[in-house]
């Protein structure tokens, strides 16, 4: 497999993802939610405006999850599907979605870890369903890919001239 396969999501996918994240926030009273792909790219955010760099946050989230995956294997687990980081005021729960993306919920004293984890489980189920469709569609398109950059060789040359 060449590593450079790509996946894409449409405005409709974005809306569906945003709906799941909004439902999670409403049900859990978490502060904000982020969705990050396993290679460290930010897919979506919802909730209160973040006072940190979300791109950097996404990269570190993926690295955190990958490192913990390896730790799990070292101790004989297939994976640590959920991670919790608890701070004095701010905390976060991270959960795997379909082995391809990571759902993160950030929360503070307005809610509890138990409630956030409980509601996160429902969101993981919904998102898994959505991403199964997105990834299977991306794989299908990859076969005879009519990419958005099809025939754009000259434009690419121009960009780097």
């Amino acid at each position: 497999m060449a590593a450079s396969s790509s996946w894409a999501f449409t405005p409709e996918d974005s809306t569906a993802i945003a709906d799941v994240l909004e439902r999670l926030l409403a049900a859990s009273n978490a502060r904000c939610a982020l969705l990050v792909d396993r290679s460290g790219q930010l897919v979506a955010t919802a909730g209160e405006p973040m006072d940190f760099d979300p791109t950097a946050f996404a990269t570190l989230t993926a690295a955190d999850f990958s490192a913990n995956d390896q730790l799990a294997r070292l101790v004989g687990e297939r994976e640590f599907g959920t991670l919790v980081h608890q701070g004095e005021k701010e905390s976060m729960v991270l959960a795997d979605v379909a082995r391809r993306v990571i759902l993160v919920a950030l929360f503070d004293q307005r809610t509890t870890l138990g409630l956030v984890r409980l509601k996160l489980k429902d969101s993981v189920v919904d998102l898994t369903r959505l991403f199964d469709v997105i990834f299977s569609r991306s794989a299908d398109v990859g076969v005879g890919r009519p990419s958005i950059l099809s025939g754009a060789h000259d434009e690419i040359d121009e960009l780097f001239s």
Binding site: S4, S6, F9, P11, S14
Partner: peptide, 15 residues
């Protein structure tokens, strides 16, 4: 694996 976001019109790639 590059990621194409049609909503925000971005192509993300990892080097």
């Amino acid at each position: 694996m590059s990621m194409i976001n049609y909503a925000s019109r971005e192509i993300n790639c990892k080097i």
